[in-house]
Amino acid sequence: MLPFIAGLAAGAVAVVAINNRKEIKEKVIEGASKVQEKAGDVKNCVVEKVEKLKTKELKFVDKEIEDVK
């Protein structure tokens, strides 16, 4: 009896998904574009922080070199 109920539920979900496929597609596309935008923001933030760290490191190395001279 349980497999019959599970099959019935899966079939109902499939029918609902097919009937709403345009809405589902729009939501997926909207979500993907938001994720892509956030990924770009994170990438830019990481690049900025890496550049700041590189600048700090170069200043530190330059100071160490001057101290040795």
Rank of each mutant, 00 (worst) to 15 (best):
I65V: 11
V50T: 13
L8Y: 00
K27W: 13
V50R: 10
P3K: 02
A32Y: 12
V28N: 03
N19C: 04
F60M: 00
E66R: 11
I29Q: 02
K59M: 12
E30I: 11
N20A: 02
A39Y: 04
C45M: 09
V61P: 05
T55V: 05
K56G: 09
V35D: 15
A14M: 01
E23G: 15
N44C: 06
K25L: 15
E37L: 05
I5A: 14
G31N: 13
E30K: 12
K63L: 06
K49L: 01
K38W: 05
G31I: 07
D62F: 01
V68T: 11
A12T: 15
A6F: 03
D67H: 06
G7T: 00
A6T: 05
T55P: 03
P3G: 01
F60R: 04
L8S: 02
V16R: 04
E66C: 14
K38S: 00
K49C: 03
C45I: 12
L58E: 15
L8V: 07
L2M: 08
K54V: 12
E37A: 12
K22V: 03
R21A: 13
E57A: 11
Q36Y: 12
L8I: 08
K27T: 04
G7N: 10
K52Y: 03
I24R: 14
V15P: 01
A14F: 01
E66W: 10
T55S: 12
M1H: 14
N44Q: 08
K38N: 06
V35R: 15
L53M: 12
G7P: 04
P3S: 00
D41R: 11
A32V: 14
E51C: 08
K27I: 15
V47M: 11
V13Q: 07
D62L: 06
I5G: 11
I29M: 02
K43A: 11
L53T: 12
E37I: 11
D62I: 12
D62N: 12
L2Q: 04
V50Y: 07
K34E: 04
I29G: 00
A10M: 04
A9F: 00
K43V: 05
L2P: 07
F60N: 03
D67K: 10
K63F: 07
E30G: 10
K22P: 07
E64V: 06
Q36K: 15
G11W: 04
M1D: 15
I65W: 02
K52C: 08
